[in-house]
Design a binder for these strands. Sequence first.
DNA 1: CTGTTAGCGCGTTCAG
DNA 2: CTGAACGCGCTAACAG
Lengths: 348, 348
Amino acid sequence: MTEPNTMVFMTTEHKKVTIRDVARLANVSYGTVSRFLNGSEHVSKDASERIAAAIKESKYTPNKAARSLAQQRTSTVALIIQVEASETVVQYSVSEAMSGANTTLGDAGYQMVTLIANSEDSTKRIEQLVNSDFADGYLLFSLSEDDSLANAFLSTNRPVVRSEVSDRGDLTYPAVDFTNADGQRDITRYMLDKGRSHIVYVCGPGYSPASIKRLAGFKEALGDRFDDRQVYFADDWEITSGELAVFEYQSMLSGIDGFVCANDNLAIGVINQLNRFGYRVPDDIAVTGFDDSPMAILSNPKLTTVRQDSMLHGRAMAELLLTMLRGEPVRQYYVRLLPTTIVERQSA
Amino acid sequence: MTEPNTMVFMTTEHKKVTIRDVARLANVSYGTVSRFLNGSEHVSKDASERIAAAIKESKYTPNKAARSLAQQRTSTVALIIQVEASETVVQYSVSEAMSGANTTLGDAGYQMVTLIANSEDSTKRIEQLVNSDFADGYLLFSLSEDDSLANAFLSTNRPVVRSEVSDRGDLTYPAVDFTNADGQRDITRYMLDKGRSHIVYVCGPGYSPASIKRLAGFKEALGDRFDDRQVYFADDWEITSGELAVFEYQSMLSGIDGFVCANDNLAIGVINQLNRFGYRVPDDIAVTGFDDSPMAILSNPKLTTVRQDSMLHGRAMAELLLTMLRGEPVRQYYVRLLPTTIVERQSA
DNA sequence: CTGTTAGCGCGTTCAG
DNA sequence: CTGAACGCGCTAACAG
């Protein structure tokens, strides 16, 4: 059956060394070994040493499934991303946050499994998983306002941390978020202070929670002078949409001296199109972004933007979850807001 | 203890509905329920219906840990990334591949856990995990040639798929990789065909497997004309290193008409610095990249580069692993090479 | 086709 | 301080 040079993998069979083997080697009962492994004080120094030696000798590693079953904990945390079907999951800020969360969870002895909800099927699968308590806690990134998934968590009593403050009153989970509104407000004021008074706001897609908050910040900065007609609603976060925004305002461009954009991609699209139309940035029209992604220094001119530390975002979420996993109480609706800062470059 | 407005989470206690409850509701033994759940044919239509109803009514979801323990499979796959401590994990191509792998594994009913090995600690942790057979299979991204981790897999007989062909003979795992050498060779020839004959190669960092292969491709294209002095060895994959390369060759720039770079970042750095030195790209000096990352269209001029489909890379790796998990035999050293294509833009 | 039962590997009583 | 025994929720092998 199995030809030479062919690998076949068995999922069964594998003479694994168990706690019993260790016990035998160390000349104790396996109950004692278990106590030793779980750091119980009630193990004699003598026995401890023999057990330690036995473990090393036999290369014993505890079986995760058995342990999970016995103590009802999985040492696993699930990071769940909910996105529009159309949207790409691979956004810089999300990747960074995932990476941050992964390392702090890993250091704490947890494994992070990543689940992506971008279709009915995947959403249903994830609901099932959550319902089976397959993880000890959850990190929830709702890149879309669609709430179908959030409901799944109502039936579990495992801790959940969200990546953004929610509007829904029944979602009492704590969250770690950026000062989106403040950041957008501040950079808008920055523009205003530089004498730019005819500003267009390129808003993110409507399904995004961040879009709403940033728009609010823009409005706040403008106060009474705000006019609905000065905001363009993009369909997504991509460069192309920034270009489209400029097309939309093409006929009025001579009366405009600034574009405030809800993220870097949109800003870059705006700059590109402005260049094509022969406008100089920032001399004729200034442009700002949001995120300070790696692309921010690639535009011409380089982007003045709002910086947020996405890696920290992930780390902070993970840390919060870890405290909850330790059993420490956390206030309902608790929110930790991470700062955003203006990065001044050439585009504004 | 627990104040109002405070959430405390219990990791124990949770009256979960088990297979027994379902059995009672459906008036069958729980062995029958188990068979039903595992798709055994030997369940009467009548019983099946009652069980299905009972499951729905009780909102039963099987316990993963128990199932894993009993059947020695975990329904999880680990994606392991090995990087230099200094290097950022968040590289576009890796994120894309992760996303691709995640969706195809998810569709197949597997959860993907991501593990990052970038320190002694994390490496040791991962070795432990692998040794405890905590996953059914592994996707291994060695972004660094450091082999300390690869050894961990020698002691498991779970299937492993690598993201690049290995030089080590004892690592017999199948791999999915790009035609790195061919891609680099072809775009070099493209340059040569355009009459560029004084070319510098900006090589990736020495710890990267891809670096080696791409360099080989460059050499192949040049054949006898190859000269050691025309290659610059970058310390990493970042833009800055591309800029440094140009500095290095500053005094000879007038005699150079092309830079072939091992990735887009390096190429962008080269272009930037060339621009600063007053050279026109591609008129004076042409530049090519590799990856076709999103940044490729942001440089000025836009980058002519080698495209590789990283999402597909992840998908293909996952698919290969799935076939192995199904028990289908796979030849030792089997390698699937994914195509690379030249994307012609303005920089060359 | 179905009920029964013996583990899977480990944590946790409870005596001693 | 330590050993024995039971149970976690489920699968699988065996009778029937």
